[in-house]
């Protein structure tokens, strides 16, 4: 009780803080430090657990062992081949999905009629887990590239579409109406006002859904593939090479991170106007 009353006498209002500021930036140095810690501490714990823990090497390889496995895979040429195979599948599926979801999402956001026509069916299909389509896709399309690309297409199409549709709803009505009073036709509003307005949201949607396509490519490869990081992981499991599994997982994480960074870069270059 005494402490509380002293506190009240000495300070009025919220006490200042650096770490717990809400919706404000923290000092650059602190930010970089915390970001470094975010990587270093898990890595250090892993190393500690692998070196001094009671877990056997077979189950938890240490960082040097993983690095060694990584070197192996690299020298044999597997790593490049597998990464390229997985990457191309993701890009392929994603490009197809984008080619459909951008026009469809914009159309659904713009026209209540198109929305009424597609929203119910999209709303149902998107709750069907994409991975559940794998058997069907294999029956339809065999075990080549087609079913894998189709899986990524299915897995990202609906979320991309709905996210783009939602973005269109945030185009200010005044902006659309102003365009009419400047002599704009409906198609001009669609292509020259709504579309450029949602470009930043499209890039953001892609960043989020890219993670899904990385998940799905591995699922597809676990089922049937000649090459690919998922296939590599499956092979490694058969021979209990956990170090290779770890190496592949790290590669997966890093590539995903790089894709994310490049989309962010694209955002900065293309959508300078949308950066606060």
């Amino acid at each position: 009780m005494a402490n509380v009353s002293v506190d009240n006498n000495q300070s009025q209002g919220l006490p200042p803080t650096i770490f717990w500021r809400i919706a404000e930036d923290i000092p650059q140095l602190l930010q970089w430090g915390l970001m470094a810690i975010s990587i270093i501490i898990p890595f250090f714990l892993w190393w500690l657990l692998a070196s001094f823990g009671t877990v056997e090497d077979v189950f938890l390889p240490s960082p040097p062992q993983v690095a060694e496995a990584f070197g192996h895979l690299w020298q044999q040429g597997h790593l490049i081949q597998d990464t390229a195979a997985s990457f191309l599948r993701v890009v392929g599926g994603f490009v197809f999905a984008a080619a459909v979801s951008i026009p469809l999402g914009i159309a659904m956001g713009t026209f209540a009629s198109i929305r009424a026509l597609f929203e119910p069916i999209v709303g149902i299909i998107r709750y069907m887990p994409a991975a559940a389509f794998v058997p069907l896709l294999i029956i339809y399309l065999g075990i080549g590239e087609a079913p894998k690309i189709a899986l990524i297409f299915i897995g990202t199409l609906f979320f991309n579409t709905l996210m783009i549709m939602d973005a269109v709803k945030f185009v200010p009505k005044e902006l659309i109406e102003t365009t009419y009073t400047l002599g704009g036709k409906r198609w001009q509003v669609l292509f020259q006002v709504i579309t450029p307005y949602v470009v930043p949201n499209i890039i953001d949607a892609f960043r989020i859904n890219m993670a899904t396509s990385w998940n799905l490519v591995i699922v597809a490869e676990l089922v049937a593939a000649e090459q690919g990081l998922g296939k590599r992981i499956l092979l490694a499991q058969k021979f209990l090479k956990t170090d290779e599994i770890f190496a592949c997982l790290i590669v997966l994480g890093l590539i995903g991170f790089l894709i994310d960074l490049s989309l962010r870069l694209l955002f900065r270059v293309w959508c300078r106007w949308a950066i606060k």
Partner: peptide, 8 residues
């Protein structure tokens, strides 16, 4: 009154 310009 508001949201009058094309921000891009």
């Amino acid at each position: 009154q508001r949201y009058t310009l094309y921000p891009w």
